[in-house]
Design a protein around this nucleic acid. Structure first.
Lengths: 196, 196
DNA sequence: CATAATCGGTAACAAATGTTACACAGGGAG
DNA sequence: CTCCCTGTGTAACATTTGTTACCGATTATG
């Protein structure tokens, strides 16, 4: 678990025992947290993978991110002034989460300087991730976003899923990919597309 | 200064004296930090106001945010794994900044639990801000974004500036505003537009 | 094997936004 | 006052993306 890397194991376990926390199992497709609801705990993903989805008032939706164990969810939601989930978190597979009260996390990072540094890195990387996504959506063309996507994932295998992540309609994505193939930027390989 | 609110003044001042930091003046229009460059320090805005601008590879740009003293800049950039400015920061007016080394900030938040909590709130609120902006760009129509803008600022006075913040071309903004006025959602008042 | 379900390709059209260009109004500087 | 600068309104057209619909391929399922 990167968050606790280098931390004092005994001290962390003691705090975990002294303060409320729970270990929860979710089945594939379950809703782990709902956009708009209060966030009081840190969600430590121990097994499985989840994805975060954002929905607008008009009902349009976007898959923000997919996270796999070991990772930490809601690190920046619990300490924000509002304390509200800006996304809905869904189980991508069966998974196990350790749900830890905000106060417990505070005790741990107050007590352990290494965990504090790790936590600051986790929360800051989350900000940087959002900055990059914002850059993509606000400033880049669909073609650029497709290329970024493939650079990150190596390939586009599932067009529908990618369309959700890229925030466009599937036929629009299909059309844009066709153009990139014609331009010689992408090529088809097996069931997916890769950079030439 | 919200960051140090409730903190132990003497302890903070001692650390500030013991560790490197500098107090810098910038003139209106000066570049305070450049997108893509390494970020090693926290920028505490003591006087004046600044704005953060994001530029894509194609040269398209977007004004992300305007911040006024007292506030903190780059709170989440210094602790990220990359440690790179995702935006360019420019002086919106003459301003004074206190530039504090990353290590100094770490000492302070390690030493003072209240400042630690404040810092977590600052950094988390920045994440939430980015989430909202992302929601706007990825999911909302221009009309919705215009209304959000007016709800936040009370009015649109400067169409050019607003076009940069909303990430659209000025004539597009002008046209969209005209439609909202015709729909009875907005009305002209003095030099600007407000919600009806 | 037959069938249904899912996914991808594509076409036609609609809607939104960008681009370019030009005219006009107001304010400041000479 | 006149000139220049900045910001605005707006029109015409180009480009991008959304929407809807239909077809074909593959795969799971009985």
């Amino acid at each position: 678990m990167p968050l606790f890397k280098g931390g004092n194991k005994d001290a962390i376990e003691k705090i975990m025992h002294d303060y409320p926390s729970r270990y929860v199992h979710y089945k594939k497709g379950d809703t782990i947290a709902m956009q708009g609801y209060v966030c009081r705990s840190l969600y430590i993903l121990c097994e499985g993978s989840v994805y975060a989805k954002m929905i607008s008032e008009e009902g349009k939706e976007l898959t923000l991110d997919t996270l796999s164990a070991p990772d930490v969810l809601a690190s920046s939601f619990i300490f924000s002034s509002e304390g509200i989930f800006p996304v809905t978190i869904l189980a991508n597979s069966d998974c196990n989460l350790w749900i830890v009260n905000k106060e417990s996390i505070l005790r741990i990072i107050e007590a352990d300087k290494l965990v504090l540094r790790n936590y600051l890195t986790v929360i800051s990387d989350h900000s940087m991730f959002l900055s990059k996504r914002l850059n993509e959506f606000a400033l880049q063309t669909l073609s650029s976003r497709i290329i970024s996507y493939i650079e990150q994932n190596g390939t586009i295998q599932n067009l529908q899923e990618a369309a959700f992540i890229l925030g466009v309609a599937r036929p629009s994505l299909s059309r844009a990919i066709l153009q990139l193939v014609n331009q010689g930027v992408l090529k088809k390989e097996n069931k997916g597309y890769i950079l030439v």
